[in-house]
């Protein structure tokens, strides 16, 4: 059962990452998250939003929507865009040995989200609606 629900819809640009962060801090302040757990959520959402700005919209300004749903024992955050999608089945966790050996740049965001959140799911409909779901239990 959803106890609380919050939403923000704003232009997808890097300058708004801090706005999104402050929206989450404000919305989550009544929960008993430790600072460490809160920071994991903030960083994961930052990564999801950065991916939208960079990959879905290629830095062209468009809208991004963040929905936060609070249940008894978990929070779910949905990051939604209408940009270029991707095939979730082709998303691989970066092979860090190769990454480090070649000083490859990029791809770390997915690794960080998967490590910091309890669940990461994708619902991709290119050009229509792409959604990343991030879940953290508490």
């Amino acid at each position: 059962m959803i106890l609380q629900s919050y939403q923000i819809k704003i232009p997808a640009k890097t300058g708004n990452l801090e706005v999104i962060r402050n929206f989450l801090i404000s919305s989550l302040q009544t929960l008993k998250f430790s600072e460490e757990e809160l920071n994991k959520v903030l960083l994961s959402v930052d990564e999801a939003c950065s991916n939208v700005i960079r990959h879905a919209y290629n830095f062209k300004e468009n809208q991004i929507k963040i929905d936060l749903k609070i249940e008894k024992n978990k929070i779910s955050i949905f990051v939604t865009d209408s940009g270029k999608g991707f095939d979730p089945s082709k998303i691989e966790t970066p092979k860090m040995d190769e990454y480090l050996k070649n000083f490859k740049v990029g791809g770390l965001g997915i690794l960080i989200m998967k490590k910091l959140m309890d669940e990461v799911e994708y619902d991709i409909r290119p050009g229509s609606q792409n959604k990343v779901k991030l879940v953290k239990y508490f």
């Binding site: 930052d46 990564e47 950065s50 000083f103 740049v105 990029g106 770390l108 965001g109 690794l111 960080i112």
Partner: peptide
């Protein structure tokens, strides 16, 4: 107090 993967990538690029 806060660093994300974009920042990490930029530091790696600068190291290179």
């Amino acid at each position: 107090a806060f660093i994300d993967s974009s920042a990490l990538g930029s530091i790696v690029a600068c190291l290179r």
